[in-house]
């Protein structure tokens, strides 16, 4: 083989190692979700076993995963929707009127630990008797998604040429009209990015849900975590549940990967 050929082989070997490293836990999750409990416990059958789907039936029958999925969807939609409703105009104002102090405050919220807010929230919400409500849990998830929305969207609005708005102004378009008709459509790709990522943040949130949600608003991470609470840990059903709650979010990110990569990398690159 030529030197170039060897280089190619070396490259694909390295790439293979990297992919195994990145994907192994997902492979393992799926493999164990289709293993019988006896096979999971038996180290001899770690890779050779008879696949079964009964864990999936079990996860939904014995451990009720439907309600948490529904709850997570509701909370995800409310917190994402509110973050957009509040964050988009705010990002626009920061970009147009150079509100640097507000922008710094937003960055600060992204830096400080999430737990800082939790004790006061818990005390106040308990006093008001509104723990375990969709509104409170959604509001808590916004502590991540709202600053994120403002932070990602500000540069998008900054990049809109002011002439475009001036033209609209001359045509008699009021500020609100300019925002909705001129600015928002241009920043569509940014809006898609923050929408998807806000939803992912909410879907995955664990700490806030643990403290603020309860019987009625139990979200999917809590449902998974509760498997450990039983004296007998049904690993097969747990892995099936894990697959069931991660796959929607993984499929969503595969379909919208362009936007998520943008969300993850903007700010780091250039800035």
């Amino acid at each position: 083989m030529t030197k170039k050929g060897w280089k190619k082989v070396g490259f694909y070997c390295l790439l293979g190692i990297v992919l195994v490293y990145v994907l192994f836990p997902f492979f393992w999750m799926v493999i164990n979700s289709i293993k019988d409990h006896k096979d999971i416990m038996n180290i001899e059958r770690i890779l050779f076993f008879k696949p079964t789907l009964k864990n999936y039936l079990g996860a939904f029958k014995n451990y009720d995963m439907v309600v948490p999925i529904k709850n997570s969807l509701i909370i995800g939609f409310i917190s994402t929707g509110l973050s957009l409703a509040l964050g988009l105009p705010c990002a626009y104002a920061i970009a147009r009127y150079k509100m640097d102090k507000l922008s710094a405050a937003i960055l600060f919220v992204r830096v400080i630990p999430a737990i800082t807010f939790l004790i006061p929230w818990f005390i106040v919400v308990s006093k008001l008797g509104i723990t375990d409500t969709f509104f409170v849990v959604s509001l808590s998830h916004m502590i991540l998604s709202l600053p994120f929305t403002v932070w990602i969207m500000t540069p998008f609005f900054e990049s809109i040429p002011i002439e475009l708005e001036e033209a609209a102004m001359i045509d008699g378009c009021a500020p609100f009209g300019r925002f909705f008709k001129v600015s928002l459509p241009i920043t569509r790709s940014g809006i898609i990015t923050v929408t998807i990522m806000s939803f992912i943040y909410s879907w995955n949130n664990f700490m806030y849900a643990m403290v603020l949600s309860g019987k009625n608003t139990k979200t999917v991470p809590i449902a998974i975590f509760n498997f450990v609470g039983y004296s007998f840990v049904d690993w097969g059903a747990m892995m099936a549940a894990a697959v069931a709650i991660t796959s929607p979010i993984l499929i969503l990110s595969l379909l919208t990967q362009k936007y998520i990569i943008k969300g993850l990398t903007s700010g780091a690159v250039k800035g």
Binding site: L19, L23, W28, I200, F227, V228, S253, I260, I261
Partner: peptide, 19 residues
Amino acid sequence: VKTMFLLPFAATPVAIAMT
């Protein structure tokens, strides 16, 4: 391949932790 790299970020941490 780049898309695969997104999976560790997007996956629910509790589910990953259990795995």
